[in-house]
Computed example of a mutant assay.
Amino acid sequence: MSNPYLIQGPALISFSGGRTSAYMLYQIIQAHGGILPDDIVVCFANTGKEREETLRFVHECGIRWNVKIHWLEYRIGEVGFEEVGFNSASRNGEPFTALIDKKGYLPNAVTRFCTSELKVRPMKKFCLSMNWTHWKNVIGLRYDEGHRVLKQLANNDARKERWTSVMPMAKAKHTKRGHVLPYWLGKNVDPINLTSPLPQGFDLGLRDLEGNCDLCMLKSRGSLKRLIRDNPGMADWWKDREASITMKSTRATAAGCRFVTEYSYSALEKEVSTQPFMPGLLEDDEDFDAECGLHCAGEAA
């Protein structure tokens, strides 16, 4: 049987910055003898709201594996993106802020334009800048994510994009519990409080709920409150963006003035500050489908 990780170019490897996509990237590099062909590129799209741990992890993967990772950020204009690096990457939500200011309203769980504009489109523009007309889009969907795999296969059949999605992890039947977590964490259960050496010598260093943009609206209410409690000041950017969008905007509806229709981030922070902390108790622990179009680290793994 042929190796699913032996990808034929032209191909773009979408690196979300999570453990799963990093595992996939390493397997692809090894399948090609340690060096990727010139027509296979790796891209990481930075919104400016990724955790610093994610940025360090992406940088370290590139250094340790000797692979060029193109760091892309959304820019207004015909080009549509700018290539940055670990040191110059935005860390205060600048690309995200620029997009919201341009739109005049906020993304939410239904209208996730943040994903399409900040992740998908810059990668597409990058491929077009190389004069590619059609390419493979290699994404880290595992075998244990069957419904997402089927959704991507349906999108391939629709032939609406310039790319065809390829999912080597699903084809290889690689899963989170059986392959990804043991590869990175070994016998460790908690990635923060390690009890034994890390198999690869480094790791993302985030728990599942901490992945993705730091306070992504697709996280559950309980997860958001826990993150706000553990990280004072983390809600500031989100509160400021909600405050910047008012009903005076001709393009903003009531839903467009909040990231989450049911509550504001300001109200959420107030709840955290006024309610007693009860360890181990969250209002809900079921997150939304936070894959964000498969280009974000919806979960740390």
Rank of each mutant, 00 (worst) to 15 (best):
K124Y: 10
F126H: 05
C127P: 14
C127V: 13
S129H: 09
N131T: 15
W132L: 15
T133P: 04
H134K: 14
W135N: 01
K136V: 09
K136I: 08
N137P: 05
V138G: 00
V138I: 02
G140F: 05
G140N: 09
D144I: 11
E145T: 02
G146S: 12
R148V: 00
R148Y: 00
R148P: 05
K151L: 07
N155H: 15
N155C: 14
D157W: 14
R159F: 05
R159S: 07
K160C: 08
K160V: 08
E161Y: 07
R162L: 15
W163T: 08
T164C: 00
V166Q: 12
M167Q: 15
A170H: 07
K173Y: 12
H174S: 01
H174T: 00
R177H: 12
G178V: 03
G178L: 02
G178T: 02
H179F: 13
V180S: 00
L181N: 05
L181V: 08
P182L: 13
W184F: 06
G186C: 00
K187H: 04
K187M: 05
N188E: 11
P191S: 11
P191F: 11
I192E: 03
I192D: 02
N193V: 15
N193C: 13
N193D: 12
T195A: 10
S196W: 09
S196K: 11
S196Y: 09
P197V: 13
P197I: 14
L198A: 00
Q200V: 07
G201D: 07
G201P: 03
F202L: 03
D203T: 10
L204H: 01
G205N: 02
L206D: 06
L206A: 03
L206P: 01
D208C: 08
L209T: 02
L209P: 00
E210C: 05
E210G: 04
N212A: 07
D214Y: 10
L215F: 01
L215E: 01
M217A: 11
M217Y: 15
M217N: 10
G222C: 00
L224Y: 14
K225G: 03
L227P: 04
L227G: 02
L227W: 04
P232M: 00
P232Y: 03
G233H: 00
G233N: 03
M234E: 13
M234D: 13
A235W: 04
A235Q: 14
A235H: 11
W237Q: 13
W238M: 10
K239S: 11
D240P: 08
R241A: 12
R241P: 06
R241G: 09
S244N: 09
M247P: 03
M247R: 11
M247E: 12
